[in-house]
Design a binder for these strands. Structure first.
Lengths: 248, 248
DNA sequence: GCGAAAAAATTGGACAGACCAATTTGTCAG
DNA sequence: CTGACAAATTGGTCTGTCCAATTTTTTCGC
């Protein structure tokens, strides 16, 4: 049960400190020197522990400033595949439409109320701000949560991480979403109506429609030069992947 | 473009060495001292780099022996959520059925031939052996690959990691799969037929049927005591999750 | 020759102490 | 109150040394 290497036990201890709530996201952890003394290890070991936590995305190390607790939006280690905006949206269409259909069969009144509030937030908040994006995310996340399936929630969060953490995807998505705002709100409302009616088929169709329109906007935008670059890179990535998959 | 901290550039360099193919999975990397000299940094930095790679699951450090390249089955950092067998199967049903439908619209003859070979492998290999399991995995993976979407492939691999790396899931799945073998082969054949006919609807239905039967077997098995425990634990996990989600 | 036990070499793990660079904080002149 | 400068804090890195686990080589009995 006990870890072999010292840095792992220290990392575990630091993680406990974080998860106990003593250090909420954004706060600074004690300095390396202090932690080294507290755990009775050398500074090197403390830093190794912090580096491993940084690799896992749990903390952020700022030189000359300190080590800060990160908000674990979806706590997977990093290393997402380099998907294209098109691929991501297609997968979201597949997955989230089925989630919506499933959610329609088991969503509670409280959860529907939550979705209403989120849509309201979306109407007020400017489209391309952080708050507007967060409302968008919450809408989709709440539907996944309504399926009462942690695997679905996990994948939804991972999909969102792809949208926000993969650079070419991030760029294209923000460019596209900047345009249509009222559209999105209307489409979300359609989904909500289907959920309120507990109609799986309608929910599926509404969600598919939502992403179909996004896909269209994406394809339009992809005619621009910058996006063409990303697409080209995706092709060689795919070839590389297929080649390595054959070997495996 | 260049990383700020030294250990990150070194980690990047080591990763390049690995991905260039010079060090296939399982092989040993050069020793810390040699790498330190080669990159002209101290041993401390090399170890920090290797620790970060270890946290990301790319290498395995064995004390007194060396640093070994790990097989990146699905290269995410670790930290999968604790899903139950039921949740996993439900998500697979949702996701893989849609993948099959999409694959039916764009699968190539070569890929169909590959699927045939995989089913053949499944018939010969004993059900519960590693080889039989690998064939099962390959069947589902090849369908995801036929969608020509890296995000789909990534999620398929992640689903499979959940099946093999999450302990309660692993136990239950192996117990269930031990029983029906010819069933599975038949069901896979049905899916293949639909793909060969390029019929998305039939592919979707065949795959849903495949997982529906798995789901049934799972529910039967869940009446046993050990699985009841896992289910109980899943409920408190879910509650904990919901509570934390409200706070976020 | 062969095989097991012992010795030597290799490798990662950890420590101490020192110095550097980035950042933050405190202070003081204007 | 503000801006510039100095000091303190904090993470980053190096050198060198020693330890423990592991692997390789040697040795020696049979």
């Amino acid at each position: 049960m006990t870890e072999k290497r010292l840095y792992q036990t220290v990392a575990r201890s630091i993680l406990d400190m974080i998860e106990s709530g003593s250090y909420p996201p954004g706060t600074r952890l004690p300095g390396e020197r202090e932690l080294a003394e507290r755990f009775d290890v050398s500074r090197v070991v403390v830093r190794e522990a912090e580096i491993s936590l940084e690799a896992l995305g749990r903390v952020e190390i700022k030189v000359g400033s300190g080590v800060y607790v990160r908000d674990p939006v979806a706590m997977t280690g990093l290393a997402l595949p380099r998907v294209t905006p098109f691929e991501l949206t297609q997968t979201r269409l597949l997955f989230e439409s089925e989630c919506a259909a499933l959610a329609a069969t088991m969503i509670t009144d409280e959860q529907i109320a939550g979705l209403e509030a989120t849509i309201e937030r979306m109407k007020t908040a400017p489209h391309d701000t952080d708050d507007g994006e967060a409302a968008d995310r919450d809408f989709h996340l709440q539907i996944a949560q309504a399926t009462d399936n942690e695997a679905n929630v996990f994948f939804l969060k991972t999909l969102w991480r792809m949208r926000t953490e993969i650079d070419p995807v991030k760029r294209v998505y923000s460019a596209v979403c900047h345009a249509d705002t009222s559209h999105r709100v209307n489409e979300h409302s359609e989904v909500l109506e289907a959920l309120r009616a507990r109609d799986p088929g309608a929910a599926r169709i509404a969600m598919r429609g939502h992403f179909s329109r996004l896909l269209e906007a994406l394809l339009d935008a992809s005619e621009r030069q910058a996006i063409e670059d990303a697409r080209r890179r995706s092709i060689e990535n795919r070839e590389r992947f297929l080649k390595s998959a054959i070997g495996a």
